[in-house]
Amino acid sequence: MAVELQPTESAIDFTLKILLLGDSGVGKTSLLTRFAHDNFDEQVASTIGVDFAVKKLSVYDKRVKLTVWDTAGQEKFRTLTTTFYRGAKGIIMVYDVSRPDTLLHLEEQWMRELELHGTEADAVRMVVANKVDVGDARRVSWHEGSDFARRHGCLFAETSAKTNIAVANAFEELVLKILETPSLLEDAGLRSGTVLLDSPQSGYGVYDYCYC
């Protein structure tokens, strides 16, 4: 396994800022809690303003510190926290597979928001279809989600924070892709010229991200 969670060494090769975006109630906070603390609560208080968690990973021989930012999903809060977008290297856009409108809003609202406030042109973007544990309540298929992601040049993953399906995997895919993008590492504390050339391709619904 190329990725090992929680390196014990204190020295960090570089720090990456990751954002979670998406409508209220799609499960951003739950994804963060699952990823950072391997925990899940059936109900969590709605996020007001921004929330923040740190997770350390080892990716190949690199020690990576991820700062993951969670934000409120309601419209009112979007323009408030523009500094929140600054320097983000990875963007996770989350929708709920039982609420098709939340996928629609990724295009109509969240991607525009990102264009407006994002500072990294090459930031790696990933669409995450959350709550795949809902069974019959599912309203957005894998194909619809993955087509959407491909059309917008994003990685794609299906997850369940509740039953712990593919959450860590999604974050790891994102990190690997960031590591393959030299322009994103310039100010991330990595020694210059160090680029991973032989990262494996995952077959888990991930599309190539063009950064040329």
Binding site: A45, I48, G49, V50, L80, T81, T83, F84
Partner: peptide, 17 residues
């Protein structure tokens, strides 16, 4: 540290969280 990152919630929710 942008004070919005913590004080926004403190102030809007009157410290209830």
């Amino acid at each position: 540290v942008d004070p919005q990152f913590y004080a926004f919630r403190w102030l809007t929710l009157l410290l209830s969280q």
